[in-house]
Each structure stands twice: as C-alpha cells, then as structure tokens.
Design a protein around this nucleic acid. Structure first.
Length: 115
DNA sequence: GTCTTGACGTTTA
DNA sequence: CTAAACGCCAAGA
C-alpha cells in the first residue's frame, strides 16, 4: 500500500459524496463525516472541501453547516458565487442561510440507505 | 520540531 | 435558554 493513496482516502470519500448530492439539495459537514464513520470529525470534511478547490466537479456550494449557514462561502473565489449557485438550483438563500434547509437537506446515510 | 488555526458538531456548565 | 469547552485530524507558520 502506498502512503500517498492512504492519505487521499478520506478526501476522496468526501468528494464522492458531495458529487452524489442531487440538484436542489444540500447536506451538512457532519452528515458526511458521519457517513465516513467519523461523526465527530466534521472538521476534516471542511478541510476536504478546502482541498476540493483543486478538484473540478465538486459542488461545495451544496455543502453547508448543520444549521444551513453558508459558513464556507468566504472561501469561494467570489464569495457571492455560493449563494448565487444555490439560488440557481432553486435553493433560496436568506442572510447567508439556506431557506427550508430542513426540507432540502440531503443525508447520505438516509438517501443512500446505509444499513 | 512544536504551536495555532480551521468550510464543524456534540456535550457540558 | 445561552455560553463555553472538548473532540477530531490536518496544514500552515
């Protein structure tokens, strides 16, 4: 086993889940972290998202914190792109927060029917 | 090499 | 109810 591959394992897992998020839906870092088997390592998901900047096809704008707040929008090239992109998919954003977040919340553990 | 910060979340006071 | 601390792991300084 190569050390390089081992290091990417967690990040790639996050990327895969994020790409699986259907349009008009959002998920939280904690949900992904829990899906990976580390419910308390939600911060790592955020780091993975940061790394996603170098990987095209990663809709990081669909990933928000547990309250639906666009905490990571500042990290986007134009910070406005995140909420703009969400609205483009039919998601309403108010005050940097997703409207009806609970309704459009996409949980990989549920949608993917794990166990 | 150590220390601090960080796209979070849960638990405890 | 709100406020603060802890846990998790990685990367930057």
């Amino acid at each position: 086993m190569k050390l390089s591959e081992k290091n990417k394992d967690f990040f790639e897992m996050v990327f895969q889940v994020v790409q699986l998020i259907p349009p008009g839906r959002v998920t939280s870092y904690g949900a992904i972290a829990r899906y990976l088997g580390s419910p308390q390592s939600s911060r790592m998901v955020g780091w993975a998202m940061h790394a996603s900047h170098q990987v095209p096809g990663i809709p990081a704008h669909r990933v928000v914190n547990r309250i639906g707040l666009l905490t990571g929008r500042i990290h986007f090239d134009p910070p406005e792109m995140m909420e703009k992109r969400l609205q483009q998919e039919g998601i309403s954003v108010k005050n940097d927060a997703v409207v009806d977040f609970k309704k459009i919340f996409w949980d990989p553990n549920v949608e993917l029917e794990i166990k």
